[in-house]
Each structure stands twice: as C-alpha cells, then as structure tokens.
Simulated assay, not measured.
Amino acid sequence: MFGDMMGMMNKIKEAQEKVEATKERMKTVMIDESSSDGLLKVTVNANREIKSINVADELMDDKEQLEDYLILTLNKALSRASEINEREVAAAAKDGMPDIPGLDMFK
C-alpha cells in the first residue's frame, strides 16, 4: 500500500517537473504576428512576454492609429501564445500524472 502511495507521489513530482520544464521551454517558442497591412509586427513568446515590436515609419505620424494597431496585433499574438502555452502545459501535466481512478481533470 505504501509502495503504491510512494509511486504515485513520485509520479506527481515527475509531472510537476515536466510542467516546469515545459514552462521554461515556452520562453523559447516565439509567435510572430503582423497587422493586416504589415505596418506593425510583434513577437511574443509562448509565456506571453513581448519580445519585439516593429513599427513602420508611416504609423509614427498617427498616434491613435498606432495605438489601435498595437492593441489589435498584440491581442492576436497574446491569444495565440495563450493557446500554445495552455495546450503544452496541459499535455505535460497529463503525461506525467499517475492513473488515479476518478481523477481525470486533464482529460
């Protein structure tokens, strides 16, 4: 009985380590997003950190337009980053979890 419990605890610890490793790897997964006309380009990582913003010179003349472009483009990039992050972390957690009857939160 205690052997089974120790085995499960080890599996849970392994799952936590896999999740942490996946979160660390997400720092290296880059998502590029551009405005529809290509005047604004942003890069974020899968941990939802902004890595770069490239603004075309013609957007610099219109502050309001630039703000709109930033909001739309960053939101698209961050949404994609969230999807990737959630999918990868859930997969890592599910892969490492022990088979405990009734505990199917990652399915």
Score class of each variant (00 low, 15 high):
Met1Gln: 08
Met1His: 11
Gly3Ser: 15
Asp4Trp: 13
Met6Val: 08
Gly7Met: 08
Met8Gln: 15
Met8Ala: 12
Ile12Thr: 05
Lys13Ser: 14
Ala15Trp: 11
Ala15Tyr: 14
Gln16Glu: 15
Glu17Ser: 11
Lys18Gln: 08
Val19Met: 15
Val19Asn: 10
Glu20Cys: 03
Ala21Trp: 06
Thr22Glu: 12
Arg25Ser: 13
Arg25His: 05
Arg25Lys: 09
Lys27Trp: 06
Lys27Asn: 15
Val29Leu: 08
Met30Asp: 10
Asp32Asn: 07
Asp32Pro: 03
Ser34Gly: 07
Ser35Ala: 10
Leu40Met: 11
Val42Arg: 07
Asn45Met: 02
Arg48Leu: 11
Lys51Ile: 14
Ser52Cys: 05
Asn54Phe: 08
Val55Thr: 12
Leu59Lys: 05
Asp61Ile: 09
Asp61Glu: 15
Asp61Lys: 14
Asp61Arg: 15
Asp62His: 08
Glu64Phe: 07
Leu70Lys: 10
Leu72Cys: 04
Asn75Phe: 06
Lys76Phe: 04
Ala81Ile: 06
Ile84Arg: 00
Glu86Cys: 00
Glu86His: 00
Glu88Ala: 06
Glu88Asp: 10
Glu88Ile: 00
Val89Ser: 02
Ala90Thr: 15
Ala90Arg: 10
Ala91Phe: 03
Ala91Tyr: 03
Ala91Ser: 13
Ala93Cys: 04
Ala93Asp: 03
Ala93Val: 04
Lys94Ile: 00
Lys94Pro: 02
Gly96Leu: 07
Gly96Trp: 09
Met97Trp: 06
Asp99Gln: 10
Asp99Val: 12
Pro101Val: 10
Gly102Lys: 04
Leu103Arg: 02
Met105Phe: 14
Met105Glu: 10
